[in-house]
């Protein structure tokens, strides 16, 4: 089991004849993704890595019954590619492109929503449902099949966390990079909701960074709706205010978007925050153990109160430990 995509997802690649598109078409195919076609205007009828290329998304959908697409189109045309996918009836759109103007995103976002589609990104590495399918550029070899759901605003930092989990023997269900821009199609809450509903996912890792208030919103959401253990990591504690740290969305502006505020909000919601990516699996194991203890004791109604107490204590301990180390 996994979220958003699986073995059956019929994937298109928009911009398949470009440098990035052709390279990753092959990588995606090798991973086992059901890539059914590619789209590049004017290149219809050709093939890339054995994948048929079409002139338009509508034509590709008609011929292949594709229901998902990955966009590798340059920033000036990426949003147009998203509109084209939506108009062709595609419901799952992953936009890898970095450098999409925020104003374009503000316009396309409501359009995607109104058509019942989901957009992931832009400026994201995409997602992998482990051993099933990958849409985007994440290296598949670092993942291992398991029960952890991973969601992140970053790329390589996500790989670092996934790799730490894999080395610790903690495999993943789906790993998603939602993108580092200011306006993105899918946020933390959308992914948390999906992971909570997915039976195969037993715990969640959420990797945030400075800028905006998505982490704070996610903390509130987790406290209210997520019963699975969540561990977090926040990048950018040493970032100066007013400077864009690589990602368009990673900026502390007007005293908001600070890493420290996000960590406080997460800790308040009982979510341990790791001090280093390598600490993530350690904290997650602790959280899973506590959860089990709480669950087994909770079976007896009398023991319910007693079970709730140690759980809280442990959560506090982890919080203290992480703040101390910082």
């Amino acid at each position: 089991m996994s979220i958003f995509i699986n073995k059956k997802t019929r994937t298109l690649i928009q911009g398949i004849t470009g440098r990035d598109g052709s390279f990753h078409a092959e990588q995606m195919k090798n991973y086992g993704t059901n890539v059914v076609g590619g789209v590049t205007p004017g290149k219809g009828g050709t093939k890339v890595a054995g994948i048929p290329v079409f002139n338009t998304v509508a034509e590709a959908v008609k011929e292949t019954k594709a229901n998902a697409t990955v966009v590798y189109v340059p920033p000036a045309f990426a949003v147009d590619a998203v509109y084209e996918a939506v108009d062709a009836g595609i419901k799952m759109i992953v936009c890898i492109t970095e450098g999409v103007p925020a104003n374009d995103m503000m316009k396309v976002y409501p359009y995607v929503k109104a058509h019942g589609a989901r957009m992931i990104g832009p400026n994201c590495p995409g997602l992998i449902s482990v051993d099933e399918a990958k849409m985007g550029i994440m290296p598949g070899n670092i993942c291992k099949k398991g029960s952890v759901g991973v969601v992140s605003r970053s790329g390589t930092l996500t790989y670092e966390a996934i790799w730490a989990l894999t080395l610790a023997g903690m495999g993943q269900t789906t790993c998603i990079g939602i993108g580092g821009d200011q306006v993105i199609g899918t946020n933390f809450i959308d992914c948390l909701e999906a992971f909570q509903a997915d039976r195969a996912t037993k715990s969640i890792v959420m990797l945030g960074e400075i800028g905006g208030s998505d982490e704070e919103d996610a903390a509130k959401f987790i406290k209210k709706y997520v019963t699975k253990p969540v561990v977090s990591f926040i990048a950018g504690q040493t970032a100066p205010p007013g400077k864009r740290m690589g990602h368009a969305g990673a900026i502390i502006s007007g005293g908001s978007g600070l890493a420290a505020d996000k960590i406080v909000a997460l800790n308040k919601a009982g979510i341990p925050v790791a001090g280093s990516p390598t600490e993530i699996p350690v904290l997650l194991m602790e959280a899973l153990k506590t959860k089990k203890v709480a669950k087994s004791t909770a079976k007896k109604p009398v023991a319910k109160k007693a079970a709730a107490k140690p759980k809280k204590k442990v959560a506090k301990k982890t919080t203290k430990k992480t703040t101390k180390k910082k």
Partner: peptide, 17 residues
């Protein structure tokens, strides 16, 4: 010197830590 913005920030944070 790091590849990726998130990892670059995390690396800085670890230096401080």
């Amino acid at each position: 010197i790091v590849n990726g913005a998130g990892l670059a920030m995390a690396t800085m944070d670890l230096v401080k830590r």
